[in-house]
Amino acid sequence: MERVTAADEQVVVFTIGGQEYALPISGVREIITWTAPTPVPEAPPYVEGVISVRGEVLPVVDLSRRFGLVSDRAEEQRRIIILEMDGQSAGLIVDDVVAVESVAAGRLAPPSPLLVNIGGLNDAVVDGILQLGENRLVVVLGPARMLETALQ
């Protein structure tokens, strides 16, 4: 474990279709095990449906479909990251949650077009690229913009 200093920010690292992504922990409310969403007719395209979390009804977004990725997990093994922004919450379906990593300030590189396109993403939803190890590059997502994009 790396030591967390004041300047550090923590990110939740997760995978979709074998690719690693990260979200700033400040936007993550909780991570729950698979709960089958109830489909909502005529909802925006990437809304998989709604689930109930602690008495609340929350929409769930499937990013893999949005970005043309293919999930390699059975549904029951996937997880849902509950994001919270401005008091509104939504779930994000991911294959697996890998770790919570500390990011020292300055280690977050701005997204280069080349790297961004690896995961089929575009720079609208990417906050930056994070190098965690020798050959380990993680795409850091901006939760608010990502949800907006997903719901378009």
Partner: peptide
């Protein structure tokens, strides 16, 4: 309510949580 992310959908007024936790 279905919330801001989903918005208003004609024909749907909201959702409810059933006894088994399903929506």
């Amino acid at each position: 309510p279905l919330g801001r992310f989903i918005g208003e959908i004609p024909g749907i007024s909201g959702a409810t949580i059933m006894g088994d936790g399903d929506v």
